[in-house]
Nucleic acid binder design. Structure first.
Lengths: 108, 108
DNA sequence: ATTTATTATCGTAATATTGCAATGATAAAA
DNA sequence: TTTTATCATTGCAATATTACGATAATAAAT
């Protein structure tokens, strides 16, 4: 089908999966790394840096905005993208919590 | 196209994205949570617990095995799945490293 | 040997994702 | 006003993902 049965999962499971899904493309990892390094950038910087078409980069930026990991501020004819630090930390915490455990992990 | 241009990204970007992609489905989050809680389980446990068809669960398990997050040991006619703790910690570290930073994140 | 239990794989249908060219939309510059 | 720069959106083609029924494959149980 290609359609995820979201209803049978908890809200938290869906939220966490959504975050991971957005991070699940190398272009979006590259975009985040670049913005982090540069602190701020415009769409065309990423087009030059990464080597995908402008439309494609724009789509990836939209995905990243959909989980509020980045935000874009209109500055004249440019849009200035930057990391949403608060959300960034929040997402990191979500992931850490998922992996955290005091289990033995005694295997079979 | 629907095909990712892996060649234009670094190996690390591709690896990280692959991990995130595998985590990017609520069924796989649910599977990991269940195995973690139960410490160990068989495929049918997950079918009962999650409510997807056996074929579907089997496919998700395959994805999780593809990044070595879990491993399956044949025990008679059952297959005993458990978390690969070493890999688990490794993956956690990868993600933490990605999010770690001492940037100001001064925005525009 | 036959049945039963468990899991993997194959085939298929529905939907989603990726990527890009073309086109809009907007604001600055000429 | 026209041009230029920047970015978003639309439409499309190619490919990937999700889900499941049907079918193997294997080993235990009868």
């Amino acid at each position: 089908m290609g359609v995820t049965k979201s209803k049978i999962f908890t809200e938290h499971q869906n939220k966490l999966a959504k975050i991971a899904k957005v991070l699940g493309h190398p272009a979006r990892i590259a975009i985040l790394e670049y913005i982090f390094k540069a602190n701020t950038c415009i769409c065309n910087d990423l087009v030059d840096e990464i080597g995908l078409a402008q439309a494609t980069i724009s789509q990836h930026l939209k995905e990243l905005k959909s989980i509020s990991l980045i935000s874009g501020t209109i500055e004249g004819k440019k849009v200035c993208y930057c990391i949403n630090k608060q959300r960034w930390d929040e997402v990191q915490q979500e992931l850490v919590n998922f992996f955290k455990s005091d289990q033995d992990a005694s295997c079979c």
